[in-house]
Write a protein that binds this DNA or RNA. Sequence first.
DNA 1: GTCTATAGAACGATAGAC
DNA 2: GTCTATCGTTCTATAGAC
Lengths: 227, 227
Amino acid sequence: MVDKAISNLFEHLFKMDTLSGHDTKEKILNVAEELFAQHGFDSTSMREITGKAHVSLALVNYHFGSKEKLLIALVEKHFSAINEERRRIYEALRRDFEDKPIPLETILRATIKPFSEKMHQTPQKIMGLVQINSHQIKNNPSFWADMWRKHFSDITEWFVREIHLTLPNLSEDDIYFRFHFMIGCMLSSIANPDRLELISKDKIRIAESEDRYQEELIRFCINAFTD
Amino acid sequence: MVDKAISNLFEHLFKMDTLSGHDTKEKILNVAEELFAQHGFDSTSMREITGKAHVSLALVNYHFGSKEKLLIALVEKHFSAINEERRRIYEALRRDFEDKPIPLETILRATIKPFSEKMHQTPQKIMGLVQINSHQIKNNPSFWADMWRKHFSDITEWFVREIHLTLPNLSEDDIYFRFHFMIGCMLSSIANPDRLELISKDKIRIAESEDRYQEELIRFCINAFTD
DNA sequence: GTCTATAGAACGATAGAC
DNA sequence: GTCTATCGTTCTATAGAC
């Protein structure tokens, strides 16, 4: 027990003392995010990351253990941030609406906005991180299942419960299917926004329509839930 | 001219004579498709491909020129097959409906089915091929634009024109946005069907709901186009 | 057309000095 | 915590025999 306390104390002092170390870790994380999103996981070498971050090659392994664990740290960082904001909004909504159903649009907005806004903050295509091609992660069949359970179970439960309250005519299965397609829609919108410019023959420019893009996505999903 | 004729003749005899060669090319294509889809482009080595195809490493370069060109050949093969079927259906529909608008559901079914059925034929997740991480392809900014213009321009034009006829209240931009999100939906549904099992906590099993999966996707899109 | 053998480059990881 | 140097591996691509 005393050992534990002393160890904690040292850990604390240690952390206080090495904000510069923290900066390096953060810098690697930021550069890796940009490069992974741009080129994908496998096409991004640790030499690229550390080169662009102006730190030595060895520091990825020192701070994260491996290239793969760096990726996982990165993905989880974003999942946490997005879902924490959702939880915050969800709780406020339930409080505000007491026992009444929350309007569909409000539910969808609360779910989509924390995601697509976070994505605009980090202008890189974050989905390069989620559509991962790493062998080891793919060969661990429970990786995504574990990730899902850790970060998204409660979000899903809230969403399904609230949609059920708001749209009692939809069966449970209906809601599952539509939530699934809606997520696909969100992911793909963020991962490949350029396609809209191709489809519209450059009549719509993403850069000039950022707000509209989000609003159209929300409207698309509102419709999709409404028979 | 005579040269050309002779050359064509030789080419013909050559092809007749080397069905085994054709088999090898096809075999490489099939194995590559499976592995690219499973592990992604960068994580699949030519050694893996040629090993599993029981041919020598050098044959990929002989038949396709490079690993990258093999991928492009593969992607284009599928694009062609899917879109040829769409064109066939589209033409028949326009003929059948004379000058009348085609019902929304019929338009969407004609667009979605050739895609999602093709995907079930090749059980591999074909989207591993489309969400490509290759440096060279990504660094060629016009690669996807060229691909799009070559394979999807006419499909898009037909779709936009018909939707406009059927749903005259939608603006041109509205149609572009929704077609864009719909494609995202289709791609993501095929790329990550497992997510539905996670969402539903295994209450819905993909293997047992293949037809329903497609029908729910179509319904989702019908709704999405209907305000 | 198909093979073996290998060149040449890039990668992830780690040991060891500071 | 950060660095340099390097090990061992694996990759794509190609040369050359058959």
